[in-house]
Nucleic acid binder design. Sequence first.
DNA 1: ACATTAAGTGATT
DNA 2: AATCACTTAATGT
Length: 222
Amino acid sequence: MLENSNKQLQSLYTFFQEEFEKELVEELEKLSQLKTVEEGQTLVDIGQQVSFIPLIVSGSIKVSRVDDNGNELLLYYIQANESCAMSFTCCMQQFPSEIRAVAEEQTDFIAIPNELMDSWMMKYPTWKSFAMKTIKLRFNEMLRTIDQIAFQKLDERLANYLRMKAKATQSSLINHSHEQIAQELATSRVVISRLLKKLENDGQVLLYRNQIKLRPQFLQPQ
DNA sequence: ACATTAAGTGATT
DNA sequence: AATCACTTAATGT
């Protein structure tokens, strides 16, 4: 396992060296520890304290919100070389998490203890700007999802979701049931099934059990 | 062969 | 677009 991810870990350290000053890279390598979570494993749930900031080495993490009825709404995915904006905002003052984070696939990440945050923010300008950058990135992305929910019709949201998913997994085959997709878009399975059927009839996708094949014309519309 | 879960569909609100 | 009720298809035991 470790051997497999060594290469990507190396590339992350390269990323660090470009991004951060020497002292910070040294501290990172010294203090951080590599952790692995399996697919489906929950990293944090709503209300829990976050004790570390994750830096994703490989894999991806799904971040979502859950309402009172237990309905899930997908917020965003964290990919390789990214960190979690929410963890920055929570960790700083030890607030409980507002979100749920679940491993979308087997994911390796570096856990940075949150005690280090304060001093790093002061000591290393590059760390501060990295934190600001990830928060800004996410904030903009979430603004976009907000007006998707407010202004886009569900069929557009679905198309959007499928394309994003394909990009995230580098594959045109999506391994989700209609039910799962419905939950992430906070709608019902029946609606998703109907929309997907329409896409299939239009020759945009192929439907299987627990799988959706996105055809090229769907991924690259003229 | 049977039970369970995923997907398809008409009708209603 | 959501919900209900029901059917059909795929998959697991």
